[in-house]
Every structure is written in structure tokens, then in C-alpha cells.
Design a binder for these strands. Structure first.
Lengths: 167, 167
DNA sequence: GCAAACTTTCAATAATTATTGAAAGTTTAG
DNA sequence: CTAAACTTTCAATAATTATTGAAAGTTTGC
């Protein structure tokens, strides 16, 4: 496999994987492209590489910046804007975990709390609803806490601190 | 909030959350409905509760069975089929984690391996591609391993074994 | 201030994904 | 074996989501 093919395969796979970490295809592809680029890219560069429109590029870059994954880089003497992504995978994972927790998991926990705290009217079905949503709430809570803790350790957290304990 | 409202809220939220754990809305809603039901439900029951068509119900039940989350239950004397879902949240998490690892994460690791093992032609861009995809491969591998290990412990794994260590 | 260089917005459209419903298939009771 | 009871399949359609492109907006240099 040559460079070009490998690059395309990586960007394509990462793109279709977007849903797994909660973002859309173009967004994931842009991030992938920046991730393996040796220098900051302009909107023009990105449009051309990925064959997507200016509007699409602009919107998705903005979203990536909202997530804190991509940053603008001003190059002296250049009029246009250039973009780079976080290059450290651990830091990247940290950002993604934090954002997903905030955007998706926390709100769900809130709903589960609300639902599981309805008044117990003594009927079997109400008891079951309360019991099951409570269990789900606790699990979600635990997973969320674990994820955030894991990811809070900045240096080699995964391999160093946690792994040995589980072996 | 009364029982009916709470139930609807739970099913709705869980449904729209489906994407987070990689399944579609109807699938997630069916699972949610079964999860808080006190008895096994027939296709008829599900269609009526969720206001979805017979075809849709059939297809999504099949998928849930493929995942191993829902099982058919034959009730003596009854002609039609009844369905139940795994009621234990830990076991549910175990199944979901295993399936997602197998269906989504493992294939990605394979691609990252392929891409990161292209021949180093000495150019900067090739070096960067190799370096970054290797880093991503290692991270994904670690996360996958951790997830599978976590989830392999059957009893109270989360709260008991791991949590204390991270506090 | 003006115009060139660039970016953002957003209504229209395309692509994708989910859902329906009716026909075909299967199982079971008699 | 046959008909009723039930389930599955799948082409058509609906709903949702992503993408385009051109007009409007913004910034910068002169």
C-alpha cells in the first residue's frame, strides 16, 4: 500500500467511524486529515483534499473548534486562516471523553434520575420502572465517573495506572 | 410525573440515545420497553405501545436477538411469540461492550494496523502518517482491552474492583 | 472609505437511513 | 392436508441528516 492509498484508507475509515464517537462524517474526515498532516491547512486545502464544499468545510471546522479538537492558526503574512488539530492521542481522548460526558451522558443521567424518582404508587409496574431506571442510572453514573477519572490523568494514564491493576 | 409520563420519557430518551451505543431508535425503544416491563411482550403488544409497524417491530426484534440482548420466550398454550430483554444492567453492559468491540472497534484496529505498517519511504509525510496512526492504534487497542477486561468481571466489577483504585 | 480576499450563513437539494404495509413464508391445530 | 394464526421479507415511501453554492457578512490593506 502506498502513501496515497494508506492516507485515503485512514481518512475514509476514520470518517465512517465518526458515529462511534458522536460526530458526522465530514467532521471526522477533516480531523483525520489534519491529524496526519505535517502542517496547518487552509480551508482551500481541506476542500480540495476531501472534495467537499466551502460551506460544509466551514461548518464542520467550526464544530471541531467548538469541541476544542481543532484550533485556528494564524500564519504571519497570510490572509487566510489555517487549521491544526490536537496531535496527542491521549489529549484527544481526554477532550472527546469530556465533551461526550457533558453533551450526552450527563443529560441522560438527569432524565434517569427524574424518571426513577416518581412516586411509588405500590403497583408492580411502577416498582419495576423505578427499580430498573435506578439501576441504569447507577450504572451510567459509574461509567461516566470512571471515564472522567481515567481521562483526567494526563500522563500515560491508561497503560500505567490502570492497566497493571487489571491484569 | 405519573407512571405513564415517566415511562414515555424513559422510552423516548433511551430511544434517542440509541446512537450513543450504536443502535437505531426503534431498536432502542423496544429494548427500553421490555426493560421496564414486568412480563414478556408479544409483537402485537410492542407495536401497539410504540406505535410502530409490524415489519419494523419484526426487523428490530431480530436485530436485538442478534445482539443477544433480547430472547424469545415461549409461553405454553400461546401460539404467538413473546419477548424479554436481559434485565441485569451489568450483564447488559457486558453484552453491549463485547458486541461493539467485535463489530466496530476490532475492524478499526485492523485498518489502523494496515495503514501504520506501510513502507517508510523516508518522507516527512509518510513518517507522520505512520507515527500518528500507530499512536491511534495503540490507544484504541488499550481502550478496547480495558473495556473488555472491565466488563469481563461479572460481579459488581465497576464499583468494587476498579473504583476504589481510582478514588 | 473602498474593494479585494476571505469566511459564514442558510434555503434548496441530495444522500442516507428508517418505516410502512402488503405479499410471501412458516408453523401448528385439527 | 388445509386453513388459520402468526412472522418475515422487501420494494416503495417517508423522515432525517448532510451537503451544496451563492448571497451576505467580515476583515484587511491601501
Amino acid at each position: 500500500m502506498d502513501y496515497q492509498k494508506a492516507k485515503e484508507k485512514f481518512i475514509g475509515t476514520w470518517g465512517s467511524l465518526g458515529t462511534l464517537w458522536g460526530i458526522n462524517k465530514a467532521m471526522a474526515q477533516i480531523q483525520a486529515l489534519l491529524f496526519i498532516s505535517t502542517k496547518a491547512l487552509s480551508m482551500e486545502d481541506i476542500m480540495e483534499e476531501l472534495k467537499i464544499s466551502r460551506g460544509n468545510t466551514s461548518m464542520n471546522l467550526r464544530q471541531l473548534m467548538d469541541w476544542g479538537i481543532v484550533t485556528k492558526e494564524l500564519i504571519p503574512g497570510e490572509r487566510k486562516e489555517f487549521f491544526t488539530t490536537e496531535k496527542d492521542v491521549q489529549e484527544l481522548a481526554r477532550i472527546v471523553a469530556k465533551e461526550r460526558s457533558r453533551r450526552e451522558i450527563k443529560p441522560v443521567i438527569k432524565v434517569l434520575e427524574d424518571v426513577s424518582s416518581i412516586k411509588d404508587d405500590g403497583t408492580e409496574k411502577t416498582k419495576e420502572l423505578i427499580k430498573q431506571t435506578k439501576a441504569l442510572k447507577n450504572l451510567t453514573d459509574d461509567l461516566d465517573t470512571l471515564m472522567n477519572k481515567l481521562v483526567d490523568q494526563k500522563q500515560n494514564w491508561l497503560t500505567k495506572s490502570v492497566f497493571k491493576l487489571m491484569k
